[in-house]
Structure formats: C-alpha cells, structure tokens
Write a protein that binds this DNA or RNA. Sequence first.
DNA 1: GGAATAGTCAACCAAATTGTTGAATATGGG
DNA 2: CCCATATTCAACAATTTGGTTGACTATTCC
Lengths: 120, 120
Amino acid sequence: MVESNPAPLDAVFHALGDATRRRMLRDLAGGERSVGQLAEPFAMSLAAASKHVKALENAGLIRREVRGRTHLCRLEPGPLASAHEWLGFYEHFWTSRLDELERLLREADSKTPPPRGDDR
Amino acid sequence: MVESNPAPLDAVFHALGDATRRRMLRDLAGGERSVGQLAEPFAMSLAAASKHVKALENAGLIRREVRGRTHLCRLEPGPLASAHEWLGFYEHFWTSRLDELERLLREADSKTPPPRGDDR
DNA sequence: GGAATAGTCAACCAAATTGTTGAATATGGG
DNA sequence: CCCATATTCAACAATTTGGTTGACTATTCC
C-alpha cells in the first residue's frame, strides 16, 4: 500500500507541521474540548485559532459536534495511525543495528567503484 | 519529553507534508541517490527538485556528501524516529479497543451532565 | 583548453498560509 | 426582548511556498 493515497497524507503532515495544532491535538488527547478551550493557551485571536481547528478538521484529525453554541472537538485517530504507519516503513533504519550495518556497507560499496571481485 | 523541541518537528512534519519529498525519501530508502536521481521521477526543473532536497536536508531528514560534481544524499533516520515517536503518543487511540471504549464512555459522560452514581 | 555534466543561486511570480480586525450568526439566560 | 457568549466569515496584509528561467560554479572527459 506504499503511498497509494497521497492527498490525505499531505493534509495530515501539513497539519502536524505547526506547533499550535500539535498542542491542540495534545489537549484533545485528554478528551473533548471546545474551540474556545483549544484556543485558550495561545496568544492569538479566536478567529486565528478557529482556522487551526479547521485545518485539523480538514485533515480528518478531529471531528466536530455542534452542541448549542459551542463546537465540541474530539480526536480522530485514523489519520494519525496512517501517518504513524507511513513512518513505520522506515523503522528499520533506526531500530536494527544490523540494518544500520547493512546501510553502511551499501554506502561503502558505492564509494569504491570496483568492489574488486567478491574474494580471492 | 512531551513536545520539548518543537522547532525540529515543525521542519520535519512540514517536509513530510509534500508528496514530492516523501517520494524522495522512499527512493533514498533504497540507498544513496544523487540530486539528479532524486529529481528524475518528477516533471519539474532540477532547480525546483534541488529546493525539495534542501528542505529535506534542513529538516535533518537527509545528509549530503559532495563527491566530485555530484551530491550524494542518504537517509538520516533520526528525525523520522522523532516524528514516529511523537505519533506513538497517540497509539492507544487507535490500537486498543478498551481505550476506544473508554473514549466512548468519556464522550457519553460529557453528553449526560449527571453521570448518575457509578453503579447502584 | 573546450564542451558536456551536476548542481546551486538569484530574481521573479502565483498561490497558499497565518495572522489581524470588524461584522454576522446562533444560542443561552435574565 | 436584550445582552452576553461561542464561533464563523469576509476582507486585508505579511510571509512562505513551490515553481520557472537564466546565469554561474565546479568537475569530468576528450
């Protein structure tokens, strides 16, 4: 399934590329929050925070339920799982020392043009 | 260590928020590649691709070694691991059905103001 | 030396992002 | 009804992004 749906990942990673929005997600990890509550930690207008909320919503990272005059937001884990899975593809690059060794060897090979017959 | 170094994550997630750069990383997962090789799959000028490479470099996702007239790039797994780890914080939101149930209950609670004594 | 190759740099442009403010909408509570 | 609260919307400005083209640098090859 290697990168079959690039559009969602674009939106998800873009949304995650902003500390304001990441902080909002952290807060939402503690349960439902209203837009006002999400905006509260930031020194910006509510309208600006509202745009960040919308960015998260567009990326599918949160869902919104309008209850009376307040909009309750909750975390939507699916896209986070997708992003996590995408990154997981590279996991062996930082986990296994054998893979690391293998990478270094491949690197060394490309540095010495003629690998000079496997042995003998 | 909850979000202690936001600047790098900004750059990393921003870099990942573009399908061109994600494709470059995929190619680099197969070993070293020159800037020209990384640019080859795309219908854009080499200069444009070069900018993408620089974005990856600025995010620490790749390292570059100038060999003669070609710039060899290789994957730098550290920042990918950081991003993966950041996302891992949310893992229980999509893995455990119990956590999912818990979330739904919390949600139900907030919907019915008086949760009406834990049992009895 | 001279030409082809690999890549960056600078200037420019269009579009998107991120913030602001002020007005508009909708709900809730005396 | 009136007013405060919660939030979005529209218009605007500054900045960033992602692309182009043309010139420049460095290296390799003959």
